[in-house]
Nucleic acid binder design. Structure first.
Lengths: 314, 314
DNA sequence: ATTAATTACGTAAGTGCTTACGTAAATGTA
DNA sequence: TACATTTACGTAAGCACTTACGTAATTAAT
């Protein structure tokens, strides 16, 4: 008991199982009390049946939320007990329609008191609690249907890891990382061009000295992303050489480093940030949209691979 | 889903199990996400261990609320994985002390992020609910520890069945039942005496005609209890011939029919109800106590079997 | 100092479900 | 009209536990 408070919410599943086990364990004793010759595990199937209307195995399974083999098994057991009658489907020879036999209907009748007593026992116990277990389960069922626990945990993971990402100013020590991160995606989709070599091999000369800026994203002491601002003739900046290592995808690094660049451009008094990209890079384009960029048509680009131009007015 | 609302609270156990299954099913995927090479089922045992302090199999089992074979099995699996070290007890050769190996401690370290993320994912989800599942489970654990579900259901059964018990006035048609019910317990513990035959064979003459009264308890259209009020010289009544069929025990019939007699005595203006019994009849004596009777010493009784006298002042 | 009872723990088998898989019937497609 | 696909359902095996049982080691009782 104490253990579960220490492990915390991680043990929610186990704790639920233990509680349910405690309850179903008592169920057997309760059936005895009412001298109903029915195994507790049969209850869902048994209760779903009627003496008049037959139901197929799959129908029952869907209704009670078990698998069909489980229902199939239970039906066989109920059948040897003589509580149900099986009838092959007439129009559909695969189906096996199950209905309550007279003996089964009899047991069902006798069970009514038990059902009533159990219901009121539980309802009375529930009144002693402040937190309604029945409703809480319902809410969780809804919650998990909406978004799985896995997805929720993934989101938490992302939040935690994003907090460990730092956006820092470029220093000469980052040159090789800056080149490598960019070369990686350029060669994957396109080919390195003359302007790429200039900017990546000599960022000091071709970017910084011209009044530009470079940011490096660091995650767990390793550079995993980069982005540059290159001054344009109109007083604005071009956002270029945006790169995120595939190993660090999903941490929102693109957004963080892009936003850092935009903030810097604004701080430097620019009115506009411009960029060129390629529509094949779907993730990149959608990131730019998220950052506020909109498609424009401007003067032709020096880059072969550019087939889309975007801008963001500050 | 709909099925569970129809079956009502009876399905509380199943519903809990299904929810817990949904959660533990996701657990495996979550472990994958963090690349922790640990089976979810190992978690409770694994988490209970430390690298310095060894714990015996039974200790672990008690702590996490599983059985010792389950722990034994898990430890063997963790052992072949190299995550734990087993050490025979030095003072007690039966014990098998388990501690985390360096490799195990390593995994434990790596798991911390996962634990944190799962905890905050669940806590965040919980904030979206109105009924706190975690607390609700805690309350139910407490509730069931206090009084088992079986006991609670038994109480409901008793309440429901007691409502079906009716206390009615004696009519001549009840004479044989009146006699049989009393003869049953008298011959079981003692022997029939002269006064018994008189009262049971001729209740009209020996009880009613003298200004006495008889009540019959009827349950499911069958007489299952009886009790008589016989007028005494002092203006009070003697409570006598109280009998409840063993087949109808536990329905509180003794109390109901006793109370009916007391009410009647009061209505007839009596100041005192008196009775004689035997201390061997523990259940009867405690019932009389519950009805308000106290032990007294009075004149000797005509009945051989009487060894205790009680009275209730109205 | 024996003998009996208790405790620790391992192995085997059972439980109430599940997934995996196979077969026959029904349905869709060319 | 033949073929592939889907559906219904049964059987087998697996899963994560449990209970049942047997065997040492320890402790209590005589």
């Amino acid at each position: 008991m104490d253990f579960y408070t220490r492990t915390g919410k991680m043990a929610l599943g186990s704790r639920l199982r233990r509680l349910s086990e405690q309850m179903t364990e008592q169920a057997a004793a309760i059936y005895d009390l009412y001298q109903v010759d029915l195994q507790p595990k049969w209850f869902p199937v048994f209760y779903s049946l009627s003496p008049t209307e037959g139901k197929s195995i799959t129908d029952i399974a869907r209704e009670i939320g078990h698998t069909h083999p489980s229902v199939s098994q239970t039906v066989r057991e109920l059948s040897t007990k003589g509580y149900v009658i099986e009838k092959k489907g007439e129009t559909d020879g695969r189906k096996n329609f199950i209905l309550l036999s007279p003996a089964g209907a009899d047991v069902r009748e006798k069970m009514q008191d038990q059902l009533d007593d159990v219901t009121s026992a539980i309802e009375k116990a529930m009144k002693e609690t402040h937190n309604d277990l029945w409703r809480a389960i319902g809410e969780w069922e809804f919650l998990l249907e909406q978004k799985s626990l896995l997805r929720r945990v993934q989101e938490e993971q992302k939040i935690r890891e994003s907090a460990q990402v730092q956006i820092i100013d470029y220093t000469p020590a980052h040159q090789s990382a800056f080149r490598q991160l960019n070369e990686e995606w350029i060669t994957k989709y396109f080919r390195m061009e003359e302007s790429d070599y200039k900017a990546l091999d000599h960022p000091q000369e071709y970017i910084l000295d011209k009044g530009g800026h470079i940011y490096i994203a660091v995650y767990k002491d390793e550079p995993v992303g980069a982005c540059a601002l290159i001054p344009m003739d109109d007083g604005g900046f071009e956002l270029a050489k945006m790169a995120v290592s595939p190993r660090a995808q999903g941490l929102g690094i693109g957004y963080l480093i892009g936003q850092a660049c935009i903030d810097k451009a604004r701080a430097l008094g620019a009115r506009r940030v411009y960029l060129e990209s390629n529509t094949a890079l779907k993730a990149a384009i959608s990131l730019y949209h998220k950052l506020g960029f909109r498609k424009v048509t401007g003067p032709p680009s020096p880059y072969e691979r550019a087939n889309i131009q975007m801008e963001l007015m500050l």
